[in-house]
Design a binder for these strands. Structure first.
Lengths: 336, 336
DNA sequence: TTGTAGGCGTTATCAG
DNA sequence: CTGATAACGCCTACAA
């Protein structure tokens, strides 16, 4: 490995000058000629700075951590993608940890924050609130992604309420009046807000809200399946189902099929998040596309900003934007 | 941040002793009493070593890089999961980079290898062979995961041939005799070996191989759709389709439906890789489960071994194990 | 505009 | 068994 010293020797200058050129320290003046000489030496020796030495000196690693529940979740894949892009753009590296990782101690993230990374994105609810608050002791910034907890302002979230409204509106526009909602776990902000959006849209359109049409699930396929079975047992079942996410929607569709019905002939189904395989399902799934990529990107932007400004707090941010992606799983009752 | 020095002061020993305790250097003897005194001090001050300083001194970052094509690919999610677990077990951190990342320069990985990481897992074919060979100049080890190229022995791959055989055998066992295969891109080792497995199993069972039943795809849903349409146009279409992966299978099923046929009533479909949503499809998809997790785990094991042994080469490894997961998308022709 | 010197927090090699 | 010392590669006042 070539070092800064060797570059300096080849360029016939003192190491510190090389360092200044490297760091593009604009306040300092460097003769154009020496600058080019140094750059030539850098290229000739194919030099790149040792990041450990830099970190040691500057006390910054230019790495940020990210905690996600599971790599096998396409929602988080999109968030990661946005986060990775923005991090790369700012010269940062992203260290992603899934909560499924074996041997994840309780103080894992505070240790990580202390010894390796400059900041942390928390995009999972598997870390409990006490542990999150204890991260404050590390004096390094963190950002909650797609979730909120009390007394923490540093969050970046989506407009899930709007997502819920859009989904519900689509079904209403198609002529449905008996619309069920299979929610996510109602202790999560996302599920709650989608539910609120559902209620608001019903009210806006003067459609009575009926408790029997609401089933709480756990955001899983199995949960969606069970919830749908309960809806099918009703005396007057709904004609359309708004599923809180795509896994729930898949479970619901499975239950519908298993009970001898068809989608969308007998039931229309819509889900939140336009994951990559939504169009490949049979029937293809109508979804509401949420700006997950942007959320990841913005979260990193906020975090890097906090790092460079040495601020531990910033006002929470909600990412606007939610788009209906109509496909085959929903159908109109109007032109019959 | 507390440092080793402060710990030393509190424990009334010289810093170097603390360092020895920290590194569990068994060759050196340390009085039991001082050891406990030091450990107490460590706990009291909540000390954890500065990894930058360590890296600088030892020239090891305890981080390994991993290049994947895309986070939105459940196959790689499983590989990452295995890699992450094993890395954590050995005290390493995993830095995952997708090739979809913006601003990924051609020398990205060699730079990364030079300045930050101790080794690299290459699980993508987006890096061309020249660049891979040029990584040798960094004198740090790398491992090809799920792929092979000429003149590189350091690979960890699956027994894709066995996967292809299992899939084909399943269809034959169900009584099918006209079995099509929608391959992946045949310049990839995985696609080629699945194809070979298909041919071998046909031969084993004395079923004639017919070229018209083979369609090459690009491992995508669209590719699967188009390939299936061609198969449907045949004078005597197959009764079963072995799809090289799940995305292809989904595309094929979509084409079948769009042409007014049913799965499995009219066509049986099987795909490789038991991704998390296979059971949620309608009909649920019969698959061959491949040991992706193990592949990730073994690849990291090999890499870490190469790092600690300071070897740049090791013999390639093939991970055994492939399991049929029968579901609704394949049906027997025998009991009719 | 460039050179000098000190130190970031560790570890490794000595000597005691 | 423990202490002293130098060095890893870089950055940053400060001096020239």
């Amino acid at each position: 490995m070539t070092t800064l010293k060797e570059v300096a020797k080849l360029a016939n200058v003192h190491p510190s000058v090389v360092s200044r050129v490297l760091n593009k320290d604009n306040t300092l003046n460097i003769k154009e000629e020496t600058r080019t000489r140094i750059n030539e030496a850098i290229n000739e020796l194919n030099y790149s700075p040792n990041s450990a030495a830099r970190s040691l000196k500057t006390n910054q690693s230019r790495m940020i951590g990210m905690a996600i529940p599971d790599f096998n979740n396409p929602v988080y894949s999109s968030i990661i993608h946005g986060a990775e892009d923005h991090a790369a753009m700012e010269g940062y590296h992203l260290l992603v940890y899934s909560m499924k990782q074996k041997g994840l101690g309780k103080d894992f993230f505070s240790k990580l924050l202390k010894e390796r990374i400059d900041g942390l994105l928390i995009a999972t609810s598997d870390i409990n609130n006490k542990h999150i608050l204890s991260l404050n002791e590390t004096k390094k910034p963190f950002v909650l992604v797609n979730r909120m907890i009390q007394d923490v302002e540093n969050y970046v979230i989506l407009d899930d309420e709007r997502g819920g409204k859009l989904a519900t509106k689509h079904l209403i526009d198609l002529g449905h009046r008996h619309i069920a909602h299979i929610t996510g776990p109602l202790y999560t902000g996302t599920a709650l807000k989608r539910f609120q959006g559902y209620r608001e849209m019903l009210q806006e359109k003067n459609i009575p809200f009926e408790v029997k049409y609401v089933q709480e699930s756990d955001y899983t396929m199995e949960g969606g399946y069970q919830s749908m079975e309960k809806l099918l047992e009703l005396d007057s079942p709904p004609t359309a189902i708004f599923a809180a996410n795509v896994m729930v929607a898949m479970g619901a569709i499975k239950a519908i099929h298993d009970n001898g019905f068809q989608v969308p002939a007998d039931f229309s189904v819509i889900g939140i998040h336009d994951v990559f395989f939504a169009s490949g399902l049979s029937p293809s799934l109508t979804t509401v596309d949420m700006p997950l990529y942007e959320m990841g990107s913005r979260a990193v932007a906020q975090l890097i900003n906090a790092i460079s400004e040495r601020k531990l707090k910033f006002p929470g941010e909600t990412i606007d934007g939610a788009n209906l992606i109509p496909r085959e799983s929903t159908r109109s009752l109007l032109d019959e």
